[in-house]
Design a protein around this nucleic acid. Structure first.
Lengths: 242, 242
DNA sequence: CGGAAATTTGAGACGAATCAATAGCTGTGG
DNA sequence: CCACAGCTATTGATTCGTCTCAAATTTCCG
């Protein structure tokens, strides 16, 4: 269930993260690789950042999934966004910021300290673009929660994950590793685990998805996109003119 | 109904916007005021930015309300966030970005071109903080849509607006101008106008809010905050050490 | 193999949507 | 000054989607 426990050599996973970042802007891959030196692991269910605490240093996820979350006094939990390999944690433009959300590891998470802005040419651009994409994901999530019904929400989220993991080179023809439980999906989508379950079964019956052993396959992503009316995010990934 | 049609001198409104920005970081107010020279007005219902189009130049709202919105193929509409006096429109760190959402004027909106980053010392910090706050608002909106019921959503949004307008100096003891219709509230909160209506009546009966003639009063913001379990946003507004 | 976590199933209750109609308000033009 | 059009707000009756609670089953993992 935990992604990194597979037999794939860790190098491959790093590379996936690298590929992801490097596609954001023209970055010297060798320099970036050098910066990725020291890797740490956080265990499942552990917090990477705790709400209200001061943020340590920005980090780059090399492997595994995490989520930003908030919890209400009465225990209700909401995942605000998912953080996948290649994503940045706690990267912000503010001088001395307090975390506005907890970041919790949904699987074992391998990360490294994000190389400082000026360590590598164009890295500033890469981070900026990364931030813009992240905001686009937040907006997409708001649309999802505000105006889509349960089944659309699930499908739409699956499409987003597919898209993002594809960019990170983590999608093969038979889908991708999806370590989320139905309860986690519920916490992200503003639903109940029970209802997520029923809707997923529906989607399986409709042959929209296959999901087994933590591996998810979207049978026809394009058709599903149309079915849901999802606008895929198109932040320019090309290098800026110059 | 349109805020700026009041008898208040336009200078006061500018100042409100100024105060807002200046509180974000130590900014030379005179320099900022100079940069605010040329003001334009956009009529109600007109778009300031259209989704998918290239963003022109970043703007600063001087008076009036706008909203970022997305519309689904079938006509469903979702407001992603509200933009109030002192807020920035289209400010992004990306080189040549496409708008990820439409920005529509909810009232007549007076704006000016946002002074460039390096025009004024510390303005970069101010923009950074402004961006961080905006992200915090997005996260708050996600929590709202995902885990609060109709009445909590409305109350929580009212509290956010109160907080933001207060920072902008636009709240007096008898509340603040609230140009939103119940339908707009519905489009922001993922509800129906009909249901918003019923819940607002409930809140009036409970003596949580007064709302008449476009003016909204929160009878006891602190109590309401507790009642809803809302965590107010505490991005550091103080100057960074040094 | 055993225990915990995750998924699945069922019955019933409740919150919010839907559809439809009415009433109030605002501005416009005759 | 009134009549009318067009929003906005309100009310009622009904339907539908999702939640809740509870229990059974399956899967995962040590």
């Amino acid at each position: 269930m935990v992604m990194i426990s597979s037999s794939a050599a860790p190098e491959n996973l790093e590379l996936a993260a690298l590929r992801r970042l490097s596609r954001l802007a023209p970055v010297d891959q060798a320099a970036l690789a050098a910066a990725l030196g020291e890797q740490r692991t956080v265990r499942v269910h552990r917090d990477l950042i705790r709400e209200g605490q001061e943020i340590v240093e920005p980090r780059l996820i090399v492997a595994g999934w995490a989520a930003r979350s908030r919890i209400l006094p009465d225990g209700r939990r909401q995942f605000l966004s998912f953080l996948l390999p290649g994503d940045l944690i706690g990267m912000c433009r503010q001088p001395r910021p307090l975390a506005v959300a907890t970041v919790v590891a949904l699987t074992d998470v391998v990360y490294c300290v994000a190389p400082p802005r000026d360590a590598i040419p164009h890295l500033t651009d890469a981070y900026a673009t990364s931030g813009a994409i992240e905001e686009a994901h937040l907006l997409g999530h708001i649309l999802r929660l505000g105006r889509l019904n349960a089944q659309e929400r699930i499908g739409d989220l699956f499409l987003e994950l597919h898209e993002r993991l594809d960019l990170a080179g983590l999608v093969s023809r038979d889908g991708f590793e999806m370590p989320l439980t139905q309860e986690m999906l519920a916490d992200a989508l503003g639903l109940t685990a029970v209802h997520v379950n029923r809707m997923v079964q529906q989607m399986r019956r409709d042959n929209d998805v296959k999901w087994k052993n933590g591996r998810l396959t979207l049978v026809d992503p394009v058709a599903l996109t149309r079915k849901i009316g999802r606008a895929s995010i198109r932040v320019s990934l090309d290098a800026p003119a110059g």
